[in-house]
Amino acid sequence: MIKGTVKIATELCKGCELCISACPQDCLALTNNINLKGYKFIQLKNDACTGCTNCALVCPDAVFTVFRQSKSSMKKAV
């Protein structure tokens, strides 16, 4: 399984939840905290992320930066 992760610009997030339905791994959820604008923001709830970039594609506020495990590290693991 390819591992990935996302960096989230929480101050830009408006909590619209579009990324939650777009995520095939179901690894995003809203926090109970709020950001400076008063919105609940999104966070990773588990480490199932594969770095597929679906969340970044549908995000209207461009909060996601997506990272994925490099191919060279995959070979090392095997």
Partner: peptide, 19 residues
């Protein structure tokens, strides 16, 4: 794992950081 990550997507630099 985190050490071996490569960037696959970031928002374009031509888009400002303004919310």
């Amino acid at each position: 794992v985190l050490e071996d990550l490569e960037l696959v997507y970031e928002k374009p630099h031509t888009l400002s950081d303004t919310a």
